[in-house]
């Protein structure tokens, strides 16, 4: 079991109003699952994703990540978990514009404190694995959207995380490139990675093996992809 969430709630205070983004969510994710989280805007989808990615902590409830209780962790401990256990893929790629592909992929390894030689070696392997072995010194603005997202995926995987967490990974790509990225996810899943994709597109969710649907801060349905 990689992730176990029990009775998680999240409240936001917006002035005098209290918003219940999550109202008691239970979720378990096992190793080598391929999961899609779906839901309309305002369903708590983003909040759940932030929680899963250890970017945020629940107001109440339990969140165990690889057996560790992360719900009560402080900022720097969460940063450590994000660095080692979670690979993020963002809709807008979030690459550093002035750094080449290699340095972008090395970034998590810098925060892990690895030496330059080891970093370079591992970043090269990660870039080759996403088919960009010949683009290592290209800057983001010298690459296509699909290539940028591949760099981001290489960056997400370079530290061998427990989960790959992708937020609308194809949202900024044309449909053909989007399919390429989803094919890459399929490969990674076959290789044994645990993948969570947050999306509002049914086409994208269909690639996963399990779909969790949220509505009004609660899980509406949770089951295998038909």
């Amino acid at each position: 079991m990689v992730i176990r969430i029990e009775g998680v709630t999240k409240l936001y205070r917006m002035g005098a109003e209290t918003i219940h983004a999550l109202r008691g969510v239970n979720l378990e994710i096992r190793r080598n699952e391929y999961l899609a989280i779906m839901g309309p805007s305002g369903s708590g989808k983003s909040t759940l994703m932030n929680m899963l990615g250890c970017l945020d902590t629940p107001s109440a409830g339990r969140y165990d990540f690889n057996g560790k209780d992360v719900a009560r962790m402080v900022d720097d401990e969460l940063a450590e978990i994000r660095n080692r256990e979670i690979g993020f893929v963002f809709q807008t790629f979030n690459l550093l514009p002035r750094s080449d592909a290699l340095h972008n992929v090395e970034l998590p390894l810098i925060y892990a404190g690895l030496s330059p030689a080891v970093r370079r070696e591992r970043a090269l392997v990660a870039l080759r694995n996403v088919g960009l072995g010949d683009r290592i010194h290209h800057k983001p603005n010298e690459m296509s959207g699909g290539q940028r997202q591949r760099v981001a995926i290489a960056r997400a995987l370079v530290n061998h995380p427990s989960i790959l967490l992708a937020d609308e990974p194809t949202g900024n790509l044309d449909s053909r490139t989007g399919e390429e990225i989803m094919a890459l996810f399929e490969d990674l899943y076959e290789q044994g990675h645990t993948i969570i994709v947050v999306t509002h597109e049914e086409d994208i969710a269909r690639h996963a093996r399990r779909v969790v649907r949220l509505r009004d801060g609660l899980i509406e349905s949770d089951g295998p992809v038909p």
């Binding site: 970017l55 720097d76 940063a79 450590e80 660095n83 080692r84 979030n94 998590p108 925060y111 960056r155």
Partner: peptide, 16 residues
């Protein structure tokens, strides 16, 4: 700000 967010997501700590 967004870059700071990205760096934090990738494991940058407050000190960093």
């Amino acid at each position: 700000t967004k870059e700071i967010g990205t760096r934090k997501a990738l494991g940058a700590r407050r000190r960093t």
